[in-house]
Simulated assay, not measured.
Amino acid sequence: MTFLRTAARLAALLALAAIPAAAAEEPGAATRFRIGRLEATALLDGTMSVPNDGKTFGLGRPPSEVAAVLRANGLSTERLDLSIQPLLVRAGPRILLFDTGAGDATFIKAGRLPASLKAAGVEPGQVTDIFVSHGHFDHVGGLLAKGGGLAFPNAAIHMAAPEWAALQANRSQAALVAAIAPKLAAFAPGAVILPGLVTAVPVNGHTPGHSAYEIGTGKDRLLYIGDSAHHEVISVQRPDWTIDYDTDAPRAEASRRALLQRAAAEGLRLYSPHFPYPGVGHVEARGDAFLWVPQAP
């Protein structure tokens, strides 16, 4: 399945599972925590829900099997709820933003990033660097303002070169590509982007150039995982189950398991833009699977 077909299917699936798009009128949410010497803030953009119908999570498995795992964890068996929460990091004169939410997409409940930034005390023009995990709309939609211009006019936009190439080939994203091209700084997968501050971590299979980001150094570092895992139960406790959003499912499943194994072995603190807000925690090994353990910021 190509990147373009996957992106189109993702939009269609979430349109079917839509919640009325009123979130832009709701207040923002900004939860501060620290990454060593760095000040970080979880920024809530919105939420989305996907039906447990065997077509998205646990692809090819009966919904009853997915429901059993959800029920065992005290969650609804009818749907899977995902958060949308970019990450803000202050590093001296730099203000870094990891992903930008869904913008004004009408088919999910999003659009709260501007209010969340305001709650964090940051104006869009102050953001110096944006790090894009991948080109799906719920991660890049917020790059554009409502009028079609850049929402963050002074920011360099960092994206893995294979991801940028795939985005450029996506005709439905032509307006976005044209707007961000002058600010785009493509990097090789795994590159050290800002020494001592941000290093790209390739997590293959979701999209052609999907990247996680390691922020900070030493024992205090944090790993922003992008879409390496979407759901705090299904993706973590059943990492080998197929997710329809993944362009290359077998490769994505292997990458997901490898990332979770590394995180558990090293005690890495993680930030997930789709796990329950504010998305900070770690994973623990549980036999052949893992357990998400949220942490208070």
Results as ranks from 00 to 15, higher is better:
residue 4 L to H: 12
residue 5 R to F: 06
residue 5 R to P: 00
residue 6 T to K: 14
residue 8 A to T: 04
residue 14 L to V: 03
residue 14 L to H: 13
residue 17 A to D: 00
residue 23 A to H: 12
residue 23 A to C: 14
residue 27 P to W: 08
residue 28 G to A: 13
residue 28 G to Q: 12
residue 29 A to T: 10
residue 34 R to F: 11
residue 35 I to N: 08
residue 40 A to F: 05
residue 41 T to I: 10
residue 41 T to Q: 04
residue 43 L to S: 02
residue 43 L to A: 01
residue 44 L to G: 04
residue 44 L to S: 05
residue 46 G to K: 00
residue 46 G to N: 06
residue 49 S to R: 01
residue 51 P to E: 05
residue 54 G to K: 07
residue 56 T to A: 14
residue 60 G to Y: 10
residue 62 P to G: 06
residue 64 S to P: 02
residue 65 E to D: 11
residue 69 V to C: 05
residue 71 R to G: 05
residue 73 N to F: 08
residue 74 G to W: 03
residue 74 G to T: 02
residue 81 D to F: 07
residue 84 I to F: 08
residue 84 I to A: 07
residue 86 P to L: 02
residue 91 A to D: 00
residue 91 A to G: 10
residue 97 L to G: 02
residue 97 L to T: 00
residue 99 D to A: 12
residue 99 D to Q: 10
residue 100 T to M: 07
residue 102 A to F: 07
residue 104 D to R: 08
residue 109 K to A: 15
residue 110 A to F: 07
residue 111 G to W: 01
residue 113 L to G: 02
residue 118 K to Y: 07
residue 121 G to Y: 04
residue 129 D to V: 00
residue 131 F to N: 06
residue 132 V to I: 13
residue 133 S to Q: 05
residue 134 H to R: 05
residue 134 H to T: 02
residue 137 F to I: 06
residue 138 D to E: 06
residue 139 H to K: 07
residue 139 H to I: 02
residue 140 V to T: 09
residue 140 V to K: 02
residue 145 A to F: 06
residue 146 K to E: 06
residue 147 G to F: 06
residue 147 G to A: 09
residue 148 G to Q: 10
residue 149 G to T: 10
residue 151 A to E: 02
residue 151 A to C: 06
residue 155 A to G: 09
residue 155 A to T: 00
residue 155 A to C: 10
residue 157 I to E: 00
residue 161 A to K: 10
residue 162 P to N: 08
residue 164 W to L: 09
residue 164 W to F: 09
residue 166 A to L: 07
residue 167 L to K: 04
residue 171 R to H: 09
residue 173 Q to F: 09
residue 177 V to Y: 04
residue 178 A to K: 14
residue 182 P to A: 14
residue 183 K to V: 01
residue 185 A to L: 13
residue 186 A to N: 03
residue 187 F to Y: 15
residue 189 P to S: 10
residue 190 G to E: 11
residue 193 I to E: 05
residue 196 G to E: 12
residue 205 G to P: 04
residue 206 H to T: 03
residue 206 H to E: 12
residue 212 A to M: 08
residue 213 Y to N: 03
residue 214 E to N: 13
residue 214 E to R: 15
residue 216 G to P: 02
residue 222 L to N: 09
residue 223 L to H: 09
residue 225 I to L: 11
residue 225 I to R: 00
residue 225 I to S: 07
residue 227 D to A: 15
residue 229 A to R: 08
residue 230 H to N: 10
residue 233 V to K: 03
residue 236 V to D: 06
residue 237 Q to N: 06
residue 237 Q to C: 05
residue 237 Q to A: 14
residue 239 P to A: 10
residue 242 T to F: 11
residue 247 T to L: 07
residue 249 A to R: 13
residue 250 P to V: 02
residue 251 R to E: 14
residue 252 A to D: 01
residue 254 A to S: 12
residue 254 A to Y: 05
residue 258 A to H: 13
residue 261 Q to K: 14
residue 261 Q to I: 01
residue 264 A to S: 15
residue 264 A to R: 12
residue 265 A to P: 13
residue 266 E to D: 15
residue 270 L to C: 07
residue 270 L to N: 04
residue 271 Y to I: 00
residue 272 S to W: 04
residue 274 H to T: 15
residue 275 F to Y: 15
residue 275 F to I: 00
residue 276 P to F: 04
residue 278 P to G: 13
residue 282 H to I: 02
residue 286 R to S: 14
residue 286 R to Q: 15
residue 288 D to I: 01
residue 290 F to W: 08
residue 293 V to L: 15
residue 297 P to A: 14
residue 297 P to T: 12
